[in-house]
């Protein structure tokens, strides 16, 4: 495995050089706020490499909160009147700098939904394919981080093209894919790190993992039947304080549910894909007025069952959670997915 050493003095220069071929994304400190958000970097802007977890996850790079999918005209003088068209879209190379390893791993979970053998969501897939993920290892995990127990972790390479590890006055850049290699080349970073670099990364990884204080187990969930968990007696208690605000689903890097809405302005309009949430009654409301998830408890159960049971059964994989802890941090009533997972694992 190739490891490149990037002197921090060359960092900003390299980023600037890479902009010729890539559009850069990274964590940006929100003015006067205590948090950062992920976004496209302005021309002279550099990513905030000291940022803690961004408030929202970086899923929006391939899955914007609102995205035009189709456009139409209602102008009867146009021969395309009432005929949907795909607008021209460009997907230039994007380098996602400083993404957390578990946030990048979340992309792989979401990919299972949007990129299947039968059908492919072109908007998500094209945006994802254009991305090169230059992750930054998490060396100071937050108190809410439980990523090591979700098959991910603070140094998880699975979703990354390059893993950057902060080594004081330099970054050690572990090249994971050819895409990653191409980005480093475009930035002009090519100095091989010494032989001891791999060992150093491994040591820092162990140190970071050891700092993580909480975990989840889901081995028993796998063995239990859907109906046993669905009918469990803890859902009322779990949902009691929930206000169905939907914050957990918005901050989550793996929540992918969306709505499709038409918006018309004058005679022109667009069909949009917009974030939706299983926390809302409208999500499942039938035209007849019947709603299969009418009650709050049903919606809370749906969210946890989807993440911790249905996903696992459907894809014969782990859980649909990377352990970033955002939903715990942002929940206004302190609902904690770790506790729910424990109840389900029982």
């Amino acid at each position: 495995m190739e490891i490149i050493k990037i002197n921090k003095k060359d960092w900003n220069g390299g980023l600037a050089k890479s902009r010729k071929a890539y559009r850069l994304y990274g964590p940006i400190r929100v003015a006067d706020k205590y948090f950062s958000e992920f976004g496209a970097l302005a021309e002279d802007e550099v990513p905030d490499m000291s940022a803690t977890d961004t408030r929202l996850s970086p899923k929006s790079i391939a899955f914007p909160p609102s995205e035009v999918m189709l456009e139409y005209t209602l102008d009867e003088n146009s021969e395309d009147c009432n005929i949907m068209k795909v607008p021209e879209k460009e997907y230039p190379h994007r380098a996602i700098i400083g993404i957390r390893p578990y946030d990048a791993a979340a992309y792989l979970l979401v990919k299972k939904n949007f990129d299947t053998s039968e059908v492919r969501d072109p908007y998500w897939c094209d945006a994802y394919d254009a991305c090169t993920f230059i992750g930054l290892a998490v060396q100071e995990p937050s108190l809410l981080d439980f990523s090591t127990s979700t098959n991910s972790g603070p140094f998880d390479e699975s979703g990354l093209d390059v893993l950057l590890v902060d080594a004081g006055d330099s970054y050690l850049a572990k090249v994971i894919t050819d895409k990653g290699k191409a980005y480093l080349k475009a930035a002009g970073w090519g100095k091989e790190a010494g032989k001891d670099a791999a060992g150093k990364i491994e040591a820092l990884k162990k140190k970071a993992e050891a700092k993580i204080q909480s975990s989840v187990s889901f081995d028993n969930i796998r063995q239990k039947s859907v109906m046993e968990l669905f009918e469990a007696d803890f859902w009322e208690d779990t949902a009691f304080a929930c206000m169905n605000c939907g914050t957990c689903t918005y901050v989550c890097p793996t929540c992918w549910c969306f709505d499709i809405q038409d918006e018309t302005h004058g005679k022109k309009g667009v069909r949009l894909k917009v974030w939706d949430s299983c926390m809302y009654p409208l999500f499942t409301l039938h035209t007849t007025g019947h709603n299969p998830r009418d009650a709050k408890v049903q919606r809370v159960r749906q969210r946890f069952m989807h993440k911790l049971k249905y996903f696992m059964d459907k894809y014969e994989d782990g859980i649909m959670c990377v352990g970033c802890g955002r939903c715990i941090r942002s929940c206004p009533v302190n609902i904690d997915i770790r506790n729910v997972c424990q109840l389900m694992n029982g």
Binding site: N113, F114, T116, E118, V119, D121, V226, F230, W256, C257, F258, D259, I260, D276, C278, F283, T284, L285, H286, P292, Q302, M305, H306, K309, Y310, F311, D313, K314
Partner: peptide, 19 residues
């Protein structure tokens, strides 16, 4: 069965009954 649907091909997530 019937459920509220949007995409119709398994991506938008709302018509799930279990997995």
């Amino acid at each position: 069965l019937e459920n509220r649907m949007k995409c119709g091909f398994g991506m938008c997530g709302r018509c799930g009954i279990g997995k």
